[in-house]
Structure formats: structure tokens, C-alpha cells
Design a protein around this nucleic acid. Structure first.
Ligand SMILES: NC(=O)c1ccc[n+]([C@@H]2O[C@H](COP(=O)([O-])OP(=O)(O)OC[C@H]3O[C@@H](n4cnc5c(N)ncnc54)[C@H](O)[C@@H]3O)[C@@H](O)[C@H]2O)c1
Ligand SMILES: NC(=O)c1ccc[n+]([C@@H]2O[C@H](COP(=O)([O-])OP(=O)(O)OC[C@H]3O[C@@H](n4cnc5c(N)ncnc54)[C@H](O)[C@@H]3O)[C@@H](O)[C@H]2O)c1
Lengths: 202, 202
DNA sequence: TACTTTTTGTGAACGTTTTCACAATCCCCT
DNA sequence: AGGGGATTGTGAAAACGTTCACAAAAAGTA
């Protein structure tokens, strides 16, 4: 359920603003959906509200964090210290939400050994042992599309079961491993489609 | 239809490999879907295949490019010359697919006037006139979440009708303007959810 | 306590998307 | 030229997701 994250984001805003309770109506308008949708989504995981009153903001936020697995922090390995990898590494928002990059790996001898904010870039050569050593649980892959499948096979071998992939390539993984893709080209093409459609009929 | 882009990507691979025709079955397995799905998707826009034979690879690729609006090139404005903006600017894949970044804008006086690969970073102060001057059609926004709504209002004023937003903020736009979000934190949270779910029941 | 107001939780209705199944069509081979 | 094998295009069925509508519950009011 992708919308739970959005609700959590709204709840955190409300928490900071010191609001005590919120109705499904209010959550819906902030999340860009409907009140019935919010209630259905939440009721799927339990009964968190009080009839006539709404949902307790800190309580619901806590429940959502628990459901989403965000009440703990996750150990993340970043493979590919290129431009995209650097942007992600320096982005503070991930760490704030419980995703800690604990190691960075690359193939380029120019980059291996360099230090990024206290973390030394390791050689991808020793990927399996490094990932086990740092007990990484999630891998973010910002390597070129030509090599990403090979890297995937190795991180899966190293025991990783969750992967965030930036290469525009469909990955093959064994059952039990979750892959999410971030495909910006696809989003741009969706815009192109909408503009082209708008310019023609409808 | 988001899947059309995926089919096109497969078709381009097949084109490079010199394959002449492809069946819905083959396209489906490459795109991670089913043969019936591929045929339904395509039949919605016309009848592009030959029964008993499959689809002509170059022909179908051409049709998909036309449908997706990729047979022309689009003029893109990049607002926010930070880390993410820099990674996107240097990424050759977008230009190859017909998205040409024609101007870059930022607020920081340190950055304004600098040159990035032949393009001078302009001051966001003059956003409306710059966007009209370069005839931008799509805006990519890589500015901080605190200011993104203000920037959106201005690019819409400047005539932009398609926006790719990287800030983790829900944008409000008038009807007729399309917004796509790239929300990496959300993708990470989906991984966290899957891992937490896997560790508990099911 | 009884009545009113508010808002949840949820079965049922509705709409959309996916899958199924098969006749129609095309190429190829003899 | 005609039959065989392959694969599309597409209605119909099934699955899935969203919206509706309302009884049940909570809290305030008198
Ligand atoms: N830059 C962008 O804006 C952008 C946008 C969308 C998608 N992507 C995708 O993200 C990925 C990375 O893009 P980028 O722009 O950062 O590229 P980049 O060339 O700047 O970085 C790639 C890095 O991966 C390293 N690398 C290569 N092979 C490796 C291997 N086998 N193991 C470990 N590291 C290896 C390289 O040394 C380099 O540091 C690509 O797949 C690209 O398609 C990038
Ligand atoms: N870096 C990442 O990996 C990452 C990941 C996900 C989302 N994002 C989002 O992308 C956006 C940019 O992130 P970043 O890491 O590049 O930040 P950044 O601070 O490196 O860059 C932001 C840039 O925007 C400019 N800017 C500020 N206000 C502006 C304005 N009003 N008009 C024009 N330019 C302005 C700044 O001068 C700066 O150059 C943020 O919204 C962030 O949440 C970034």
C-alpha cells in the first residue's frame, strides 16, 4: 500500500504543528484521495480511530511507522558512486527516515579508497564480503544498465532481499527478493504522452 | 499507459539486435507482463500486428513513438541546479530520448552565470521571461520542498503544462497541467514495508 | 440519562483492469 | 491452390480496487 507513506507524511506535518487528532476527511484532502479510501486503507491493518472523533495523530503515526517498518532503521549499501549515487548519498532525507547508508562500493580504481562523508568507497570486487561485514539489508543500485544484472546477482548472493534500482533495465531476481525501480525516463515519457494527447484530440 | 514505454524499450533492444518481428508472448516476457495484456494494450491504439506472424519490430516501435509523442523532441527547462539537478543534466539518456534541456535556472548567486556544458545558468528571478524566450514545454523541478509550490505557480504562469517534480511535496496545479512525481523516499519505504512484512507473517 | 452530533468501520454496489478463450487471419509448405 | 500451424484482435468472465451508504460508537449537551 503506497498511500500509507503519503498519510504518514501528512501525519508528521500535523505532528509538528501540534495537532492532536485528524479526521479521515482531513487526511484525504492532504493525501489527494477520498475519506472512504483512507478509512478502507487503514481498516485493512486494524482499527486505529475513535468514532465521532477521528484518529489520534501521534498514535496513528506510530502505527503507520510500525506497519511500514520505519520504527527501526535500515542498513543500506550503495553500489555505484557516480553522479546519481553522489546525489543520493548526500541527500539527508533518507537518513532522517531511517535509511542509513553504511557502505558505498564502486568499480573505478579512481574512486575506490576515496572518502565520502566519513565512509570509504570500497572496491566492488569484494562486494559479497563487504555486504556481509556491514550487515546491509537494502541495496541501492546506481550502476550503468549494462552491468546492473550482474551486480544484482551478486548482491542477492550476499543475502540482500530488497533492491532499489535506478538503471532502466528490468531485473531478474529469485522469489523472495523485492525490487523497486526508479525510472525517470518513464515519467518523462508519460508527460510527453499527455502533451501529445492533449495537442491531438481530447 | 505506462507499459507502452516499457514495450518501446524492449523493441529498441530488439531493433538493435536486428530482429524483424516479435510476438506478444516475447514482448510480454521482456516487459514482465502477459501476452494478452500486451495485445489489449496495443489494440487500444490500433491494429499493428499480423496474425500468425507477430509485430514488425521497426513498425511497432515507430507507432509507439508516435503514440507516446517521442517522434519529436521536447524542450525542457531544469529549475534547481543542485545535486539532483546536476545528475539529471549530465545524464545523456534523456537527450537521446528526445528531451533536450534548453535552460537551467537557480536562485543561488554563486551558481547563476556558471556554465554547464554550454548552457549558462540563469537567475530564477526572470523565470517567466526565460521560459517564454526558450519556448520550454516541460519543466523538471529539483528545488527544495519548501519553495517548490511557489516555483510551480510561476512555471505554470509561464505557460508550462507538464512538470516532473522531485520534491516530496504534493503540488497543486490548475486543470490542464500534468504533474508527475519522482519520489524515491516512497520507493524505499515500500522496500521497508516488504521486508517488515516478510519478517512477520506471510 | 436521553438526545444530538460527529465520524469511524464495513458490507454492498460500482467501475476499471486483467485474464481467458477462441474465431479470424496470415504465412508457409507441399 | 489448399491445408497446417502460428498468432492476433476481441468479446466475455474474473479479479481487483474504489466509492457509496449506513449502522455502530463516542463524546458533548442538557
Ligand atoms: N544521472 C541521472 O540523472 C540518471 C537518471 C536516471 C537513471 N540513471 C541511471 O542510474 C545509473 C547511474 O547513472 P549515473 O549517471 O550515476 O552514471 P555514472 O556513470 O555517473 O555512475 C556510474 C558509476 O557506477 C560505477 N560502476 C560501473 N560498473 C560498476 C560495477 N560493476 N560495480 C560497481 N560500480 C560500477 C562507475 O564507476 C560509476 O562510478 C545508470 O543506470 C543510469 O541509467 C541516472
Ligand atoms: N539529492 C537527492 O538524492 C534527492 C532525492 C530525492 C529527492 N530529492 C529532492 O530534490 C530536490 C533537490 O534536491 P537536491 O539534493 O538537489 O538539493 P540541493 O540543495 O542540492 O539543490 C537545490 C537547488 O535549488 C536551488 N534553489 C533553491 N531555491 C530555489 C528557487 N526558489 N528557485 C530556483 N532554485 C532554487 C538551490 O540554490 C540549489 O541549487 C529536493 O526537493 C529534494 O527533496 C533529492
Amino acid at each position: 500500500m503506497r498511500r500509507l507513506s503519503l498519510y504518514l507524511r501528512s501525519l508528521e506535518e500535523l505532528e509538528r504543528a501540534g495537532v492532536a487528532t485528524v479526521s479521515s476527511q482531513e487526511l484525504a484532502s492532504r493525501g489527494g484521495t477520498t475519506a472512504a479510501q483512507v478509512r478502507k486503507d487503514l481498516s485493512h491493518f486494524g482499527s486505529f480511530g475513535k468514532r465521532g472523533l477521528g484518529y489520534g495523530v501521534p498514535h496513528l503515526a506510530g502505527e503507520l511507522r510500525r506497519i511500514l517498518g520505519l520504527s527501526r532503521s535500515w542498513r543500506v549499501a550503495l553500489v555505484g558512486a557516480g553522479r546519481m549515487g553522489a546525489a543520493l548519498f548526500e541527500y539527508p532525507n533518507f537518513r532522517d527516515r531511517g535509511f542509513r547508508i553504511v557502505t558505498v562500493l564502486d568499480q573505478d580504481p579512481e574512486k575506490v579508497g576515496k572518502e565520502w562523508g566519513g565512509i570509504v568507497i570500497r572496491d566492488v570486487e569484494g562486494l559479497e564480503s563487504v555486504l556481509r561485514e556491514v550487515r546491509a539489508e537494502i541495496a541501492i543500485l546506481t550502476v550503468p544498465g549494462e552491468v546492473v544484472q550482474e551486480v544484482v546477482d551478486r548482491v542477492v548472493d550476499a543475502g540482500i532481499r530488497a533492491i532499489l534500482n535506478f538503471a532502466p533495465v528490468r531485473l531478474r531476481v529469485p522469489p523472495g527478493v523485492v525490487v523497486n525501480d526508479v525510472n525517470m525516463a518513464l515519467e518523462l515519457e508519460a508527460l510527453s504522452f499527455a502533451l501529445a494527447r492533449g495537442a491531438r484530440g481530447r
